[in-house]
């Protein structure tokens, strides 16, 4: 178990770098998590993270890759809801990495 310090607050992470307490998440935490992954968040990352949080609020689970692509296509259009765009933004593992940065639990069906 490791932790992250954001704005003077210590935030617990599990062994894979996911938030232990999902309510710890905010935009600043997302930035800090991204830096741990050596990723600089741009607006196009942030809109996917917001979308993932909407997905989680609606369905109470983290999407695997295919549902993430479908949901993104549904909400942001096909030019963003495709594996190329999402792979490019999230280093080839969009379901896992974007879920982590969005403060969601690790997708259980990410096989």
């Amino acid at each position: 178990m490791s932790s992250l310090v954001v704005d003077g607050r210590e935030i617990a992470l599990d062994k894979d770098g996911f938030l232990v307490d999902l309510s710890d998440w905010n935009e600043a935490v997302a930035e800090a998590l991204a830096r741990r992954e050596e990723l600089e968040l741009e607006d196009e990352h942030r809109e996917v993270l917001r979308l993932l949080r909407e997905f989680y609020a609606e369905f109470q689970l983290s999407p695997a890759t295919r549902p993430l692509i479908k949901y993104t296509a549904l909400k942001l259009g096909p030019e963003k809801g495709n594996s190329m765009h999402l792979n490019r933004l999230f280093k080839g593992t969009p379901a896992k990495l974007a879920a982590k940065l969005a403060g969601l639990p690790k997708p259980s069906n990410c096989l």
Partner: peptide
Amino acid sequence: AASLEQKDLTANLQALPLFG
């Protein structure tokens, strides 16, 4: 679901079409 401190299975089920 929250009243039994469990995850909301019915919410999960609604995601099935997105899972194909």
